[in-house]
Design a protein around this nucleic acid. Structure first.
Lengths: 90, 90
DNA sequence: GACAAAGTTTCCCAATTTTGAAACATTAGT
DNA sequence: ACTAATGTTTCAAAATTGGGAAACTTTGTC
């Protein structure tokens, strides 16, 4: 699961999914990457249990499912920020 | 930070550090890897703000600092387990 | 000073991951 | 049936990451 989170693009996608569901082509356009890459990233997030997909015709919508991921991200942010301070000026 | 967590050996080290501080050579011995590798992994954990190091003579002791990492691990475990169930039998 | 112990850094190679293009489904609409 | 739109998969190249051995620091001891 941490491997799934260990890529800026996938973090970006999770942040997009925080507010609403997105289909692959929308996320690809937002991120400025080809559909194939977006599909593969989303597939990894799905394997990690962080998102779910649902088909609507030709579209596949991805939704954020893991409820604790946002808390997790907040924890990560706080940790990183406080360690930055220490590493610089204390 | 998630990159720092995205390696089994570093998770192993964090679990060791849950109970007490360890020096590099102790962790290397526990993990069965050379000191150089252990040092590099610990360096990444330090850069991510997850551990701190303190020198005692020639020894360098590493200590777990990020208080939320353990909650984070619990969250991760719960998420992974519930998604496994879904992916198998629902 | 010489030596040993503990860590770090460097160098190079192996392994993994990421990327983009193209081929391949699948579904919808005409 | 044909075409367009959306996703997924495959493949090879590119990029990143990890691993081990040796060189190098630094500190403590004799």
């Amino acid at each position: 699961m941490f491997k799934a989170l260990a890529h800026p693009m996938r973090i970006f996608m999770l942040e997009k999914l925080r507010d609403k569901s997105w289909c692959v082509c929308e996320l690809a356009a937002e991120a400025g990457i080809p559909k194939s890459a977006a599909s593969k990233h989303l597939s990894q997030l799905k394997d990690a249990g962080l998102v779910e997909d649902e088909k609507f015709g030709t579209r596949v919508e991805y939704t954020l499912t893991a409820p604790c991921v946002l808390d997790l991200a907040a924890c990560a942010e706080g940790t990183v920020l406080s360690s930055r301070k220490k590493q610089l000026g204390l």
